[in-house]
Nucleic acid binder design. Sequence first.
DNA 1: CTGAGATCCTGTCTGC
DNA 2: TGCAGACAGGATCTCA
Length: 267
Amino acid sequence: MPELPEVETICNAFKKSVTNPVIKEFKIINPKLRWKINNKIPSILKGKRINNISRRAKYIIMDFDDGSIILHLGMTGILRKTSTFPEIFKHDHFMLKLEDDATYIYNDVRKFGSLHWVYDKSKHFLIKNLGVEPLSRLFSKKYLYEKLKNKKTQVKNLIMNQNIVVGIGNIYASEALYDSKIRPNRISSTITISECENLVKSIKKVLSRSIKFGGTSIKDYKTLDGKSGYFKQKLMVYGLEKCQCGEVLIIVKISGRSSFYCAKCQK
DNA sequence: CTGAGATCCTGTCTGC
DNA sequence: TGCAGACAGGATCTCA
C-alpha cells in the first residue's frame, strides 16, 4: 500500500501525536503478519521510553535506549489512533498504549506488514542492505547512473529495487518515469546520463510533491486520524486512461505489476 | 551473481 | 446471484 510519501505522512503524524512517550502496554492481538510478531515484545516494551520516531525507506522506526521497533505497513497496513477503551476490529494485529492512554492500533487486511524488535537496527536484515534515500543528496545522477549502466532489468524494476533507492513503489515509479519522459520497460543500460539526471529530478519532485499533499489514497491508505491523502488528484498516469496529451495510456506488466505510460510522451 | 516468476493474504470487482 | 479469475500501493523466496 504505502510508498515513501504515505509512510512519511503517517510517521510524521504519529510522531506529532505522541505527548507522553512512555509505553504503558503493548498488546498482541493477532501475531500473524509477514513474520510472526515476537511474543516477548510486550514484556520488552513495557515501561520503555520512545526516544525517537523516524522513517527509513518504507519502515517506521521507534528508537529506545537499548533497541528499536521496526514497523512495515506492507500493502494494507493502517495505524489508527483511538480511544482509551478501543473497539477491536477484524484484521487488527497489535495495540500500543502510552502512559497518557493515547492508544495506537495496527490493522492489516493482507498481513504483508511486519513488526520487529531489534537491539541494533543497523545490523538487522531488513535495514542493512537498503539503498539510499531518494530525497537525500546521496541520490544523485552519478549514483543512479552507476547502478543503471550495467543492468539488464527494465528501468521500472530498478528504481523500485529497495537495495538501490528506497521508498519508490508501483505508483511513484510510473509517475516519475512519466515525468522524466522515459518508458518503464526501457532496459536500464540504455538510459543515457542526461535521462538519468531527469529521472533523479523527477523522482525527487514526484515524491516531495506527494508528501506535500499527504500521500496518495487509492484504496486502503489512511493516515493516523483516518483521513485520506490528496495526491491521487495529481497523478498523471497511474490508474488513468488518457495522457494529458490526449493519447490513450498503455498498461504493461513489468515483473507482474501494472505499469502505465504514454507512448507519445515517453521514449 | 542476476533477473523473473511464485508466493504470502484478504477483499473487491468483472465477466460468464 | 453464484462463482471463477484477475487484480491490488510490497518484498522475500526460489529457481533457471
